[in-house]
């Protein structure tokens, strides 16, 4: 048995080496870097330098506030939409189901730059189709890129468009795992379709919904593409700057790796904390 294990580990060694060098070490290294002053060469150990700055940095709080705001509004809306889409996809009344499934999932495979460019065009002040539609129903134009609130809304719309279908497909798999005879039993129990949805479907989907919510929380905590590409690096004036963008700006524009590492660890810590709270709230009763 021991020889067998040794042989297995010998085969695993190349992978483990790469895993340690490119995964484990960077994780440890960045944690250590977050305790170093990296503005000057040579770097020196100064625990309060980055973490102390983080606590008092208005840019950090701004990014944190924006990230959490997107998280609190966009994730629940997207999950609710995804549930609706999944129920629609699962309906026996729906024709051309395959087409809808493809259409809902397609945004995930569209290139980020291309999709961002299209969104910029669609929401452009003078030429965008969105403002033209708003005008056509008598509403005023919205300057999506120059004002903070519309810009935040735009980010949320874009992220929702991109990921709702992906979550819908996961939830659809959950829906399809609910046995049909449970619904038949409920039908014989004179339970209406609406009540069946709220008292059977939703509770039974809970594990899948939690899974999607956790994935979305982690994704939103790292949100970068949309504020970088659509609202042009967190514009207007940092109004859509997220933690991911702050990290990028500090690490790769200012080359301040210590502070960027501290931001990265804060993001990861927050994602874990929020996920744990979420799992605790949605736990199965004993």
């Amino acid at each position: 048995m021991r020889t067998q294990n040794a042989t297995a580990y010998r085969f695993l060694t190349p992978y483990l080496l790469i895993f340690v060098v490119f995964w484990i070490w960077p994780i440890i290294s960045s944690f250590l870097i977050s305790f170093q002053a990296t503005r000057t060469v040579p770097w020196r150990f100064a625990p309060a330098f980055n973490w102390g700055r983080l606590i008092g940095d208005p840019a950090f709080y701004n990014a944190l506030k924006n990230t959490l705001l997107i998280l609190v509004i966009q994730v629940p809306v997207m999950i609710a939409l995804a549930i609706g889409m999944a129920v629609l996809l699962n309906s026996p009344l729906l024709k051309a189901r395959g087409l809808y499934r493809f259409a809902f999932f397609a945004p995930v495979v569209v290139g980020e730059v291309a999709y961002s460019a299209v969104f910029r065009l669609m929401f452009s002040l003078d030429f965008g189709i969105v403002n033209k539609l708003l005008n056509s129903i008598g509403l005023p134009k919205v300057d999506w890129f120059s004002n903070v609130t519309p810009a935040m809304a735009l980010i949320m719309i874009a992220v929702t468009w991109r990921w709702a279908g992906y979550n819908a497909i996961i939830i659809l798999a959950g829906l399809q795992s609910i046995p049909e005879d449970v619904y038949e039993a409920a039908t014989l129990d004179r339970v209406s379709k609406v009540k069946q949805f709220f008292h059977i479907t939703l509770p039974l989907l809970k594990p899948v919904i939690v899974f999607c919510a956790v994935l979305s929380i982690i994704g939103t905590m790292q949100l970068f593409t949309e504020p970088f590409l659509i609202t042009e690096r967190g514009g207007p004036g940092g109004g859509t700057e997220t933690l991911g963008l702050l990290l990028y700006r500090q690490g790769f524009r200012s080359l301040n790796f210590g502070y960027a590492s501290a931001v990265a660890y804060t993001m990861a810590g927050l994602a874990i904390a929020i996920t744990l709270v979420q799992l605790w709230l949605m736990r199965e009763p004993k």
């Binding site: 046995p179 005879d181 449970v182 059977i200």
Partner: peptide, 8 residues
Amino acid sequence: FQSYALYP
């Protein structure tokens, strides 16, 4: 039902 169809 054969599978009992209880609400899990």
